[in-house]
């Protein structure tokens, strides 16, 4: 149920994010989710890509600082209160979210959010018990 996320260091300068997507394009890797975090003078782009290991190596080869981290993907009903209800469950399970962003979704009545949490294995166990729908990496990379 753990999904590999690829993060890349970026300077806050025009063209630097484009340089990352260019490598992915050349390697014909499809982006499933993307989010940008920024500080005053640098940023981190976090991505869920269909083949994270390949994405990691093409970006490394292009001299980027890259890290793979584990995240979870939670399915949320695409309707008012959908996220709210999931968050309440997470809260009841005592899960602290470090950051989250949503998957680039095709037409369906479900939304998917990517969550980075502390103690990922424990969180997965709790969420399963609470009947929160977690997606496998296969589902996130391909089947959406």
């Amino acid at each position: 149920m753990k999904i590999k996320q690829v993060s890349v260091f970026l300077e806050n300068k025009p063209g630097h994010l484009r340089a990352v997507t260019e490598e992915l394009t050349k390697a014909k890797l499809n982006l499933r989710a993307i989010s940008l975090a920024d500080s005053e003078d640098f940023g981190i782009v976090r991505m869920v890509v269909e083949d994270p290991d390949k994405a990691y190596s093409v970006l490394r080869a292009a001299n980027h600082a890259v890290q793979e981290t584990e995240v979870i993907a939670v399915e949320v009903p695409d309707q008012p209160g959908g996220l709210h209800n999931v968050l309440r469950t997470l809260e009841e399970c005592g899960v602290n979210i470090e950051y989250m962003y949503s998957v680039l979704e095709r037409k369906s009545n479900k939304a998917v959010i990517i969550l980075r949490v502390e103690g990922i294995d424990e969180v997965i166990r709790k969420l399963k018990t609470a009947n929160v729908k977690l997606l496998s990496s296969g589902e996130v990379y391909n089947a959406l």
Binding site: S7, F9, S39, I44, R46, A65, V66, Q67, E98, R116
Partner: peptide, 15 residues
Amino acid sequence: EVDQRLFSDEIKKLQ
């Protein structure tokens, strides 16, 4: 320079 060893996915660690 940020290299592989230094880079972390967390903004606060880099800061």
